[in-house]
Simulated assay, not measured.
Amino acid sequence: MPIDATQPYDDANIFAKILRGEIPSKKVYEDDFAFAFHDIAPQAPVHVLVIPKGPYVSWDDFSARGSDAEIAGFVRAVGHVARDHVGPGYRLLANVGGDAGQEVPHLHVHVFAGAPLGPMLAR
């Protein structure tokens, strides 16, 4: 079922369950605003997901409803994970909605690294 980035937040989504500790994950980083963990189906040698702790469906939802502290804290957490846990040469990706390939209705930023990643989109 495609994700509608404007849908109400569903607290039964897999990332909400990970945040509540109902589903295990391989944690990389955590602070007051974000939680980062290894993707269970990595698309690169290093593939980490960074999610905000608040109930946000997408980047659109987060940028519209998140507090200034949440937004700054999350952006800093993504930077921290990329710098200190992934290393130089990485790609950040946040899909918004079904047409972009968003599979889980909780904002998440993919951090890819560990090998040359090639072009952004197939040509």
Score class of each variant (00 low, 15 high):
Ala100Thr: 04
Pro116Lys: 11
His80Leu: 11
Asn95Thr: 05
Ile3Asn: 14
Ala82Gly: 10
Tyr56Lys: 05
Arg123Cys: 02
Val111Gln: 06
Ala113Asp: 12
Ser67Phe: 08
Ala77Gly: 05
Pro119Gln: 13
Val96Gly: 09
Gln7Trp: 02
Val81Phe: 01
Gly87Val: 01
Val104Cys: 09
Pro45Tyr: 07
Gly97Lys: 00
Leu93Glu: 09
Ala44Pro: 00
Lys53Leu: 11
Phe112Thr: 00
Tyr9Cys: 13
Ala94Gln: 14
Phe37Thr: 04
Ala44Lys: 00
Val75Lys: 11
Gly73Ser: 11
Pro45Cys: 10
Phe62Gln: 10
Asp32Gly: 11
Pro52Val: 13
Leu93Asn: 09
Gly118Pro: 01
Pro52Trp: 08
Lys53Trp: 09
Thr6Lys: 07
Pro55His: 10
Asp4Ser: 14
Ser63Asn: 09
Val96Ile: 15
Asp84Pro: 01
Val104Tyr: 13
Gly101Lys: 00
Asp61Ala: 12
Asp31Cys: 09
Pro8Phe: 02
Glu30Gly: 13
Val50Ala: 05
Ala94Met: 15
Lys17Arg: 15
Ala115Lys: 15
Arg91Glu: 01
Ser25Phe: 12
Pro105Tyr: 04
Val78Asn: 04
Phe15Val: 03
Gly87Cys: 06
Met120Cys: 06
Val81Tyr: 02
Asp61Arg: 04
Ala5Asp: 12
Phe37Arg: 00
Arg83Cys: 09
Lys26Tyr: 06
Met1Trp: 09
Pro105Ala: 15
Arg65His: 14
Arg76Glu: 14
Arg83Tyr: 03
Val86Asp: 00
Gly54Met: 06
Val109Gly: 02
Val48Tyr: 11
Thr6Met: 05
Ala44Cys: 03
Val104Arg: 08
Ala34His: 07
Ile23Asp: 03
Leu93Tyr: 02
Glu22Lys: 09
Arg83Thr: 12
Asp68Ile: 04
Phe35Tyr: 15
His106Ser: 11
Ala69Lys: 14
Asp10Glu: 10
Ala44Phe: 03
Leu92His: 10
Gly114His: 01
Gln7Ala: 15
Val81His: 01
Phe35Ala: 02
Ser67Pro: 04
Pro116Glu: 15
Gly118Asp: 12
Ile3Phe: 06
Ser67Leu: 08
Val86Ser: 01
Lys26Met: 11
Gly54Pro: 09
Gly89Ile: 02
Lys27Ser: 13
Pro119Asn: 08
Pro42Thr: 00
Val46Tyr: 06
Ala77Asn: 06
Val57Arg: 03
Asp10Val: 14
Ile23Cys: 03
Val46Thr: 15
Gly54Trp: 06
Val46Arg: 12
Gly101His: 00
Phe35His: 13
Arg20Ser: 14
Phe62Tyr: 12
